[in-house]
Design a protein around this nucleic acid. Sequence first.
DNA 1: TTACAATGTCGTCGAACGCTGACATTTTAG
DNA 2: CTAAAATGTCAGCGTTCGACGACATTGTAA
Lengths: 101, 101
Amino acid sequence: MRVRTPSELGALIRDYRMRHNLDQKSLAASVGVSRQWIVEIEQGKAGAPLGLVLRTLGALGIVLDAQQETPPSPKVKNKSHGVDAYVDINTIVAGARKKRK
Amino acid sequence: MRVRTPSELGALIRDYRMRHNLDQKSLAASVGVSRQWIVEIEQGKAGAPLGLVLRTLGALGIVLDAQQETPPSPKVKNKSHGVDAYVDINTIVAGARKKRK
DNA sequence: TTACAATGTCGTCGAACGCTGACATTTTAG
DNA sequence: CTAAAATGTCAGCGTTCGACGACATTGTAA
């Protein structure tokens, strides 16, 4: 499942929690948060700390994979001029210089 | 790339930001946060709010996909007794009853 | 029915957060 | 080399968060 918003992640967590036949109290205990926090996460709380979110996913056996979003269908292919959306000549030039440690 | 910890996500964001040849100030502006916040996110801040994190990923063209973690290689197959890690008899019984709206 | 479990909501409080502004350090441009 | 840009860090301040306890609602079990 693709995760773009806090609400989507909340639905994901709730779905997986129920698949494992866990109640909010048990999940909260294994994650190390309050039950109220589980309620709010499942409702899509945007302010939830990243660390707790990842621990919750881990407790449910969920892993996240990051990918490059598919480009918005390039209408024009490479020509002698024009700027590619993901590769810039300046990037090449800059990359030729000493890299930051 | 697999994302399991705030530090991994920070490295991911930094990597993508540099691929797009953006400085912290520009990224911060497009996400709608302060430059200091970008600094902290790239350093793996665990307390960063989920909503801002997702907006940052969106600004960089990164999408997240959630998957079920591969089971830890089941040593024993289904027998007449014993508990499967992902399917519990109680789940079946409970599921046979009326579902919560 | 009654009793219990699970869920959702509401205060309160201490802790952590993000922002602004400034400054030091590091890296790049000239 | 020097100057500018980019990055990392700090202190102060107002806001927001998570934990806790209590309570209402809903669904299940007896």
